[in-house]
Design a protein around this nucleic acid. Structure first.
Lengths: 132, 132
DNA sequence: CATTTATATGCCTATATAGGAATATGTCAA
DNA sequence: TTGACATATTCCTATATAGGCATATAAATG
């Protein structure tokens, strides 16, 4: 199967950084497509396409006026993201608070939780036999 | 171009609902791969693959012990998501608080911001001429 | 009417999945 | 050693983009 479509929900829609930028630009004020084009330095068709995705998941709403389309944010649709991630806040809070006091007892652990991504370690791997 | 890879950052990694489930299951406690397999009812290879993505973006960390791999959450990596979405909280807060009092003045606006996604409206469209 | 401006959509392509099935790697036990 | 268990990786395929480019639709303007 393929990846979950971008229009599935807010989680998928905001995975794209351009769309997050658009959303941020719409915070608090309506914007026309061309305003976004200028602010973001992205082609007009691309902006329209990103807006379409955001429209389909309900993150933005359009108001038409003459030949302009005024887009505004429907922040409600971002709430599920907030609600999902918020419970984890206590973990990094806790870590910040307790990191010093627990330093000794965890000193034996090799990897630093705050350090960058890691690739798969040790295990070697050999290509499996060709199909058949 | 294709979509931003799932391993680009936490935003892309958590777009997949299975991975969000895995993350939630790891909140507060280490789990082995098989424990996750049982809890989630997903095949072992799939769980391993999802864990790999989460490892690569640093959202989870492995500890090896014998033939087991104990995965735990590195919540830090979710902080960018939280930080990005948190500023929007005030918008739905505000909406909840002010929705009644502003009802009259905004009554003329057609669409309900809390309603579901919408498809593109009015405009008709015709397939463009074949290339050439 | 024709032209300009604003926006949406279509086609094309390279790329990356998610999941299923098979199998490799690594560890422990008898 | 052999076998069982735990986990990772490979191959395969259908599907969906994101972006470039061209063009359609629609409204305003002369």
């Amino acid at each position: 199967m393929a990846r979950t479509p971008t229009t599935t929900d807010a989680f998928n829609a905001i995975a794209e950084s351009r769309r997050r930028e658009i959303i941020s630009h719409l915070a608090g004020q309506e914007r026309s497509v061309n305003e976004l084009v200028r602010s973001l330095g992205v082609s007009q068709p691309q902006v329209s396409k990103h807006l379409r995705v955001l429209r389909e998941v309900g993150v933005v709403i359009v108001r038409e006026s003459g030949r302009h389309r005024w887009y505004r944010l429907n922040a409600q649709r971002l709430k599920p993201v907030f609600d999902w991630v918020k419970p984890f806040e206590r973990f990094w809070d806790h870590q910040l608070a307790g990191i010093k006091s627990r330093a000794e007892s965890t000193a034996s652990q090799a990897s630093d939780p705050t350090s960058g991504p890691r690739r798969a370690p040790k295990r070697k791997s050999v290509p499996p036999k060709k199909k058949g």
